[in-house]
């Protein structure tokens, strides 16, 4: 809030932080368009001397990455859609009704978010194994709901509570059912909130690593994070392809995020400012 005159330390510090934050990302982008012999040269070049897309063609035409990309899209879309649907119902229940045990149930939603992932992996593996859901889209999506469902519910409760009740009351008087009200009035009114919830959900499933490592070990369901880790851990790492694959994996997220940045940051920090 300090609106003072031009201050050199502020600009210097802003510059240092910006460079720190963006440099690895830039280095990844630059490395991805350098041919291998340039990548493996000492001293390294800053800007690409022989600009080339060969790493990208490698990744796109002679690796599993396109398939993993498809898997990631299917799984993230699936988990996001189901989470939003179930979370909208639950959030509406919490925001608009009073019932016994409400406080405890609402708190338990938050607590399940705090659970260490490592704790539930083993039993989940056994359950999914029994249901025959290991290495299936359905299995991975189901597991992802553990993370996304509580978070989406929590975010949506906030958005729904902020809506005035009067409009719904009018519809109730006209004899509309609660379910109809949720889908025809409440959801359309909270579109900004839904968008930020969707983005958060999509990004967190897109980036998820531990569950995918356990429950998606087959080529047909492996997601991008696993594919990428595989690339690097192989003995002879093709760093050019790794950087190209990293770019391919990051770009959708960055575009999505900055497309709705205003909405998102507002939604995430709304609770923090109130406290």
């Amino acid at each position: 809030m300090s609106s003072r005159k031009f201050s050199l330390p502020t600009y210097l510090l802003a510059l240092v932080f910006s460079v720190l934050a963006i440099f690895p990302f830039c280095w990844m982008a630059l490395s991805s368009v350098k041919p291998l012999q340039e990548l493996y040269s000492v001293p390294p070049t800053w800007l690409p001397q022989n600009f080339s897309f060969e790493n990208y063609t490698n990744v796109l035409f002679s690796s599993n990455i396109p398939r993993y990309f498809l898997n990631s899209v299917v799984i993230s879309f699936g988990a996001t859609t189901i989470s939003i649907f179930l979370a909208a119902l639950a959030a509406y229940g919490f925001a608009r009704f009073r019932f016994r045990g409400q406080g405890a149930l609402q708190a338990s939603i938050l607590i399940s978010q705090l659970l260490p992932t490592a704790t539930v992996i083993v039993p989940l593996y056994i359950i999914l194994g029994r249901l025959g859901l290991i290495n299936t889209y359905a299995g991975v999506i189901l597991v992802y709901l553990i993370h996304t469902l509580p978070l989406c519910t929590w975010m949506l409760i906030g958005y729904f509570r902020a809506l005035p009740f009067e409009i719904e009351e009018a519809a109730l008087v006209d004899g509309a059912s609660r379910l109809l009200i949720l889908f025809r009035i409440v959801l359309p009114l909270s579109v900004p909130g839904i968008i930020s919830t969707v983005v958060y959900c999509f990004v967190s499933t897109w980036n998820e690593f531990i569950f995918a490592l356990v429950f998606a070990t087959d080529r047909t369901v492996k997601t991008l994070p696993i594919g990428l880790a595989e690339f690097t851990s192989e003995f002879n790492t093709d760093w050019g392809s790794v950087m190209a694959a990293s770019m391919i994996m990051t770009l959708p997220i960055v575009v999505l995020f900055f497309g709705v940045q205003k909405l998102f940051v507002g939604g995430l920090t709304a609770g923090a400012t109130k406290g």
Binding site: S18, P24, F25, W206, F209, P225, A229, T232, M243, T250
Partner: peptide
């Protein structure tokens, strides 16, 4: 702009951060 730039590390997927830093 600085606010947007500073969000990048947080937005970048964890595995991508890992591979990029491993390369650096």
């Amino acid at each position: 702009i600085v606010r947007s730039i500073m969000l990048i590390p947080w937005v970048v997927p964890g595995t991508v951060a890992a591979t990029t830093w491993a390369w650096m």
